[in-house]
């Protein structure tokens, strides 16, 4: 009895420690100024009303709105590029015994052992003219060899007979990849796509390094300067004297930063074990 009570307690703590902060952030973002002041000025825990003023303020065309677009653009374009090149390379490397298989695989895997370092990476990215370009947020991190290895492992588990019979029917490798391999690999493509998308959406340091122009700031940079540095940026397109952001406004930005993850996550989550662990262990 005591044992199962302790077990229940431990599991509840695990869950609540995640849910309570998220709840409080959501409630605060929907609180009015009065409720906020009543609660003590910083965070609200018990909802009184639902007030969308904070969301209206940040979505009316100021820096947060722009950052939201930038982050969306980088995430969508980046994920498309990463996923395409990763699928191609993973399939290209999925057949041991093909020409150059071993050296090319070695070329990819060696990146696990050799880490180029911050300074040379910075010099290369700025040297090829990507400073203040949104490409600097995509190209340097476009290929994750870990994701590639996971996907390759998954591809290798597809029955070879299927591919061989397609080849006998005269299908080329590109057609086989598109028509046979990819439809069978939806799970791993979903998971790897989520990993890439989350990576782009969450990237903060690359933007700190490469983006100086505030018109191109992604959401994470804006979130950090508002909350952790306590700056009050211009929210609306109009140049009226802006009030310092209330906690509701700050928390609304937090909610917007989490929202896309919360929306996509449930669709992909059920593939985690199937797509990732199998690939990782076999790979």
């Amino acid at each position: 009895m005591v044992g199962s009570f302790l077990k229940f307690l431990a599991l509840s703590v695990m869950v609540l420690v995640v849910l309570i902060p998220m709840w409080s952030v959501l409630v605060t973002s929907l609180a009015s100024r009065e409720t906020l002041a009543e609660a003590g000025g910083s965070m609200v825990f018990l909802p009184k009303e639902i007030d969308f003023t904070a969301y209206q303020t940040i979505l009316s065309g100021g820096i947060v709105t722009r950052a939201l677009w930038i982050s969306t653009l980088v995430t969508v374009a980046g994920t498309a590029i990463s996923l395409t090149f990763t699928v191609l390379a993973a399939y290209g490397l999925s057949r041991p015994g093909s020409v150059g298989h071993r050296p090319i695989l070695f070329y990819f895997l060696l990146t696990f052992l050799i880490y180029p370092g911050l300074v040379p990476t910075y010099l290369v990215v700025t040297g090829v003219g990507l400073k203040d370009s949104l490409w600097s947020l995509i190209l340097p991190t476009a290929i994750s060899v870990f994701n590639l290895v996971v996907m390759r492992g998954f591809f290798q588990n597809i029955p070879q007979d299927l591919l061989d019979s397609a080849r006998i029917d005269g299908a080329g490798e590109f057609r086989i990849l598109l028509r046979i391999v990819m439809p069978l690999s939806k799970a791993v493509i979903a998971v790897v796509g989520l990993f890439y998308a989350v990576g782009y959406w969450n990237a903060w340091f690359n933007a700190l390094l490469f983006i100086d122009n505030s018109d191109k700031f992604p959401l994470q940079i804006v979130l950090r300067s508002m909350i952790l540095l306590g700056q009050s940026p211009q929210f609306s397109g109009a140049t009226t004297g802006s009030l310092p952001p209330t906690e509701s406004i700050k928390m609304a930005v937090v909610v917007l930063t989490i929202l896309p993850i919360l929306v996509i996550y449930p669709f992909v989550q059920r593939h985690f074990i199937k797509g990732v662990i199998l690939g990782a262990i076999k790979g």
Partner: peptide, 27 residues
Amino acid sequence: RDWPLLLMTVPAGLLLLAFHYLPTLGN
């Protein structure tokens, strides 16, 4: 027989060359 497979690894390989191996040399 295998040239399509080789071709498929080229884009990812080039990206690693530019943003992984080139910086490594940059050390």
